[in-house]
Design a protein around this nucleic acid. Structure first.
Lengths: 204, 204
DNA sequence: ACATATACGGAACGTTGTTCCGTTTTTCAA
DNA sequence: TTGAAAAACGGAACAACGTTCCGTATATGT
């Protein structure tokens, strides 16, 4: 411990390192916000999140100067988790099954984010960065699953991940009125569509 | 004026008639709300609307117990105006032109209601009545235009007004990012699609 | 151990939706 | 025309929210 651990630090040398309590509070805040947003929607009061995290309101605003910053941070984290699930599923299942499972995982993610979708289209410029992040993370994740499944011959090749993402997002919209199975059925239908022209089998 | 005008009144006899100032204020409120919502979106403060209408806040809440009631009233009125436009246009133009003009009119309506669409999907149960009203008023309006145009042989017959309404609503969504002409082009494309199989002309 | 940068907590401010009630205005009958 | 009574008005007052501010507490590095 006496030796200076010459850690890779992108910042200048003179800076102190982040205080331990600050990091701890930030983690607690993100966890609390995720839980509260899931339970009460993105319109939940900041005070409620602060209380659940066991910190003062000032601490919330130190880490997230605006309410929207907290929402964005949680959103990014959940997008990351969804992208990460692609790798996990790819390692644990065969390509076709991994793709199918991920699509349902993604459907759940979209369905749960209904309230956030409303905020997204509310015109607030703070949220303009979200769609691009969404694409940047999720398109490669899905594309890798699609490619693997196509290579294994269980789905047709050459289908754009972007289109599939958008299609599921759109199809998930009415699933709140038509029941939760509706989105599931639509996604399964899309998957069957992908399987249709799979491999060398199609006669035409 | 001395004779009692035995007006058709659906209510019981004993009731007084609505006070003149109440009716005047209600009209002023609706006009003010329409203007303010158009200028600043549906999130505009109630106080601003009250001031523009020249009434106190209490008066607003007498007529519209909740903020959402005011939004809903304005929405209904604009839906009514859009439905009414179908009759006006049908009387003033030939069927094909009337249909085309109404579609653009409807597109403008949808494009202007972006902020409201966000509120609509925000999960607030107060707005649940809006979609059905929307359908009930607009589907017959468009259907009459479609039928007339089909009878005149300028568009194909048998296309459902419901589908067309939904398609335009969906297509208008990206027109805020891709410029206002985008929606226009898409609607024109839809109209050309309708014209394609018109009358007895199609060879196939 | 000390000095200092850093982070914390929560009171306080401005803005919102909504409620409440004393006051004003309109209506109807005599 | 006049005079209650019903109806409606206006805006002060309340509660809840997002956000700012600053005195206090605490971790960090010498």
């Amino acid at each position: 411990m006496s030796g200076k651990t010459a850690g890779i630090r992108p910042e200048e040398e003179g800076k102190r390192r982040v205080r331990a309590d600050a990091q701890r509070n930030l983690d607690a805040l993100l966890r609390a916000a995720m839980a509260v947003f899931a339970a009460s929607g993105v319109d939940a009061p900041v005070r409620e999140i602060a209380e659940k995290a066991g910190v003062g309101i000032g601490t919330v605003y130190r880490h997230f100067p605006q309410r929207s910053d907290l929402i964005i941070a949680v959103f990014r984290q959940e997008v990351d988790a969804c992208a990460e699930a692609a790798r996990t599923l790819a390692a644990a299942h065969e390509p076709g099954e991994a793709l199918a499972r991920w699509m349902r995982r993604y459907l759940d993610f979209i369905a749960a984010k209904r309230g956030l979708a409303a905020a997204l289209h509310s015109g607030d410029p703070a949220y303009e960065v979200l769609p691009s992040y969404f694409q940047k993370r999720l398109v490669p994740a899905l594309q890798s699953l699609l490619d693997a499944a196509a290579a294994a011959g269980v789905v047709r090749a050459g289908f754009a991940a972007t289109d599939l993402l958008r299609a599921v997002a759109v199809l998930a919209a009415p699933s709140q009125e038509l029941g939760p199975e509706h989105g599931r059925r639509m996604v399964d239908l899309l998957l069957d569509g992908l399987r249709y022209g799979a491999g060398p089998s199609p006669g035409a």
